[in-house]
Design a protein around this nucleic acid. Structure first.
Lengths: 153, 153
DNA sequence: TCGGATTCCATTGACGCCCATGAGGTCCCA
DNA sequence: TGGGACCTCATGGGCGTCAATGGAATCCGA
């Protein structure tokens, strides 16, 4: 494992720059990815970001859908078309585009949330609210898994 | 097995550091995990902590859910995003974050409670109160199991 | 030539690492 | 069997390093 773990909140400066948390940068280096692959999260007002592991998951998902279909078009547009590859400068910072800042409602602070093979970029307050929901949903999913396991046994 | 057993109470110093009980450290070494993996307990005002065994349980749960879905995002946010990997310094201490201290209401003493594959970090008084409840609940669970076994037999 | 973007540099504050101290327990030997 | 040396572990504090941040300087396209 040892992908993106934990969460960090950093400041977005006047130029739109923000430091990528050092542990995440190290994970990207281990991952062998130059820069930062990101696209708007399909489910939340947040940015999904990562490196080769993330790209690999996207490819895997696309393999499950026949090409030249409308579904495949939609997925590839969402994951490839809407994406951007940000450059990480010498000090470990990236410049978020106006579009990204708007989509995730980013103001002057941003929260990086590790999700293993990828991480998300949130506006801190929104994340706090979302976190409670995610917790609840996660517990539901686990309960369902347990129920299924018990039923199968 | 011989994972984390028994309980210990140590002091939290002005810097927010606390010594991990030596037996727990030894268990972590045997487990082969560098540092301490922890996240807020979903059920109690306490911190769940452990090493590879704990991480393995989490990964196992995540494997059952497709990536890039809302369910997977929720689970990984709950378990990866909310977690932190603390470094254990040369003297066997970890630094608890402000957030962790707040979540578990930690003041100047903390109690480590072994739970086999993981352990919990509690505020001593709260743990004392929780312990009675946990005992009662444990009795109920045991009774239910016995009833089920008797019914099945 | 102007504006935006990239690179470089300086500051500061948190964290990691080191050493010192002291309490408690164990082992060895008289 | 009692005393003492030794060891382990918890705890407190000091200091160096690195990451985050703000700003200046330079480069490039419009």
């Amino acid at each position: 494992m040892a992908g993106f773990v934990s969460h960090y909140t950093n400041r977005l400066d006047a130029k739109g720059r923000v430091s990528v948390p050092a542990p995440f940068r190290q994970a990207l280096v281990r991952d062998g990815f130059e820069g930062l692959y990101c696209f708007p999260s399909p489910h939340h007002p947040a940015i999904d970001a990562g490196g080769n592991q993330l790209v690999a998951q996207i490819e895997k998902r696309l393999l499950g859908v026949a090409t030249l279909t409308e579904d495949h078009d939609a997925l590839s547009t969402a994951f490839y078309g809407a994406s951007e590859t940000l450059k990480i400068d010498g000090d470990g910072r990236v410049m978020l585009s106006e579009e990204q800042r708007h989509y995730a409602c980013l103001d002057n602070q941003v929260t990086f949330v590790g999700q293993g093979y990828k991480f998300q970029i949130w506006e801190p307050e929104r994340f706090k609210a979302h976190r409670a929901d995610a917790m609840k949903r996660a517990m539901d999913v686990l309960a369902q898994q347990s129920a299924k396991a018990a039923g199968a046994a």
